[in-house]
Nucleic acid binder design. Sequence first.
DNA 1: CCGGTGTTTGACAATCGTTCTCACTTCTCT
DNA 2: AGAGAAGTGAGAACGATTGTCAAACACCGG
Lengths: 137, 137
Amino acid sequence: MPRMTRQRSAVADALAQVDDFRSAQQLHELLRDRGDAIGLATVYRTLQALVDGGEVDVMRTADGESVYRRCARREHHHHLICRSCGTTVEIDGPSVESWAATIGAAHGFRQIEHTMELFGTCAVCAARTDEAPHAPV
Amino acid sequence: MPRMTRQRSAVADALAQVDDFRSAQQLHELLRDRGDAIGLATVYRTLQALVDGGEVDVMRTADGESVYRRCARREHHHHLICRSCGTTVEIDGPSVESWAATIGAAHGFRQIEHTMELFGTCAVCAARTDEAPHAPV
DNA sequence: CCGGTGTTTGACAATCGTTCTCACTTCTCT
DNA sequence: AGAGAAGTGAGAACGATTGTCAAACACCGG
C-alpha cells in the first residue's frame, strides 16, 4: 500500500502550485530550487503513481516529452493550451464524446477511446504579438 | 533540391505497401528483410522529409514512439485505429473542426489547432475475442 | 561517355528522457 | 527494540532519435 512520505507530498505540492503542464525534469528542478531534496527517479515514480490514481493528467509534447498537470476535474476532459505561454484551460466536449462514439460504431469499432488537445494563442499572448510594430508577413 | 535516390524510393515503396502506422525502426527492418540495404539514419531522415512535405502522417504512440503512415488524403484528417491489430481508418470530422474553433474563440484563443485520434477494437478483433470461451471479467 | 561538385548516405557516437538496479533508509507493527 | 515491507536515490542502463563526417552517388555540362 502507498505510504505518505515527505517526497510524495512535496511533488503533490509542487503540482498544486503551478497551473500548466510541466515535465518531470522541470518539477524536479523546481523542487530542488525550493529546497526539497529529492531524487529524479522518485519524481518520475511519484508522478506515475499520481497518473495511475487519476489525480494527474499526462500529455506528450510534440517532441515526445511527458508533461504533467494537476487537474480540477477528475472526470475525462480535454485541454486548450496556449502555445506561447502554456496557460491551460480545461474543457469538456460532450459533442465530441458522442461524435467519437458514433463514428467508431459506424465503422464497427467497440470500446472507443480518444485523445484530443487544442492548441492556440491566448488573448494575452495575441495582444503582446499584435502590439509589436511593423510585424511583416 | 531533393534528389531521387534508391533509398528514398525504397522508403516510399515500403510505406505504400502497408496500410497502418509503422515506426521508423519497423520500416527499417522491413526494408532490410526485403533486401534493400539502407541505414537507419537514412530511414529517419527520409521519413522526416516526407512528413515535412505532407506526404506522410506522424503520430506518437502511448509509449512515445513516432509512427508513420502514408495517407490517402493529404488534407487534415483524423484516424480511427484498432488497438489490437492496428488497422487504421481515415476519418474527417467537420463537426469537431468547428467545435474546436468555437471553443477556442470562446476562450479568446486564436489560431486554433488540434490533435485527435480515436482508438477502439475493430469488428474482426472483437469477434476473435468474443469467440474465446469462458472469457471472464 | 567523363569528370566535377554539391547532395546523400551510413556506421557509429552522442543525446536525452525515462526506467532499472540495488544498497540503504524509513515506516509500521508488534 | 527488532523484523519485514515500502520508499528512496545515485548512477547505470535503455531505447528512440539525431549528429558527425568521410566515402559514395546523382545530376550537370562538356
